[in-house]
Amino acid sequence: MNINSSVLLSKYIKAYTLKMVSKAKASHVGGGLSISDILAVLYNNILYFDSQKPLLESRDRFILSKGHCCAALYATLALKNFFTLRDLNSFAQFGSNFMSHASHKVKGVEFSTGSLGHGLPYAVGKAVAAKSRNKKWEVFVLLSDGELNEGSNWEATLFASHHNLNNLTIIVDYNKLQSLTTVEKTIKIEPLKDKFEAFGCYVSEVNGHDHEELKKSLSKKNKKNSPKVIIAHTVKGKGVSFMENRVEWHYKSPDKDQLEMALNEIGVSL
């Protein structure tokens, strides 16, 4: 499939995410929908890659730290021709590489994740490697908001800032809902922008579903000699009215009728 518009790409990412999760009776569709616009902009407009050479040395590195939302990443990679859309049918099936947490055994996936708080330290290691070898490629890592409860993220942010890793972009999918309830009721993370700024990062806040805002902030030159943080305000379950902002869609998978309704709302038929 050849899609050159990030908006159209994001619709297909959402549609395939819904279809994969529904077929596999898997979880985490809500978080997958909240990151679909971010993934679409990254893979359509920002990241440098060659889908036929997934390990191309000069590629930008993208790490999905919130590995439970991998269906959206797998869909993105298929839509960008790392493998076929038919391959997505094996998602979470016996013997498949497409496990329901991000797997490095899938072409284009840099790093297996699933336990939260692992992606950022790994991304920092890659950013150090690039600096140490004077490479121009950059590192992007996508974290969830609930994931920020993990202390390893703050260890990594301290380090990245201290070592002026301005080749690192941290994106926070801030959909305000975590596993059991809201972020606010679980462990408050506000004032989030101030926190990252206090750690020495160059921080911006965007609407994580506005492609122009995302493009602008992701491509904006890092004004500080420090990691860039983009706090992307998002909606869990974005694009499907009966899933939006509802914590149960962290777990539930849409049945056949719900899938049809959801695809209608997204405006894509598969």
Partner: peptide, 10 residues
Amino acid sequence: QNMTGMAAGL
């Protein structure tokens, strides 16, 4: 934790 994660990245 960060040291070990970074080691994997490197």
